[in-house]
Design a protein around this nucleic acid. Sequence first.
DNA 1: ACCCAGGGTCGTC
DNA 2: GACGACCCTGGG
Length: 288
Amino acid sequence: MEEQKYVLENQDSFELKHIFDCGQCFRWNEETDGSYTGVFGKNVLNVQKQCKKIIFKGIVDGNIEEIVTDYFDLNRNYLEIKEQLSKIDENVSSSVKYGEGIRILNQDLWETIISFIISANNNIPRIKGIIERLSEKYGQEIEWNGKKYYTFPTRQELENVTVQDFRNLGAGFRDVRLYETTHMILDKKVDLDKLHHEKDTEIVREELLTLSGVGPKVADCILLFSTLKRFDVFPIDVWVRRVMNELYIKNPDEKKVNKKEIEKIALEKFGSLEGLAQQYLFYWKREA
DNA sequence: ACCCAGGGTCGTC
DNA sequence: GACGACCCTGGG
């Protein structure tokens, strides 16, 4: 395939570091020139920002403008969202200012499910390593500029992968979960296409929770970061627990903070934008 | 050397 | 509903 290029001018709310380091994705890496390269779908893409210009180029399966517009959520008005969130209080306002260039990517549902099962009780360097090895071993190779990249394996490509194979990739105790979930999806015990057509977030959530290795936190991440794209969820991890406690609850023993209490406050304060609020607060707290 | 924590989930009580 | 166990890696 031929390299394609697309240039975007005067795009607001688009900072590479904010988008790729806010914890929503695991396959984007910074180059020495400050640009980022990543693999998604059958695409290998490099993104760089020069002043107000954003330059996308790479090996892309389809029309680059359409693919980029969809993946980077370019049709959504983030200025309006940020304005609404900033009205809530000083803290949210600071966090929004800090991560003003965040965009929530439209990532493939299957890839997001597997990636966040791997993320459980794990750290980011290791998560990235496992996903990279998984792709190298079972995905398709794409060569670009003399470098080799690998697509994230499809569910069919993982059909014959054993529990031990997952363990050998370094997945640890998540091996069984990955195996079971892969087969539940292959057997359509959970039908990913149907999930996209279901409107009620709570029903989709219940369905995701039947997957092995998917608990409340992982389910919410899948809902927020994949093409399911729900903002009425609030993934609670150690960082969000920390920041919510510091800002609103102020319990001296952070671990004792009740999840229900966090959820209640989040819903009251952030309403239907709670997923986005979570992301700004998470990025703010974890980076600073 | 040793301990701890990391974008949690699961089985057991 | 609370509690410990779980694989593995990096950092103090």
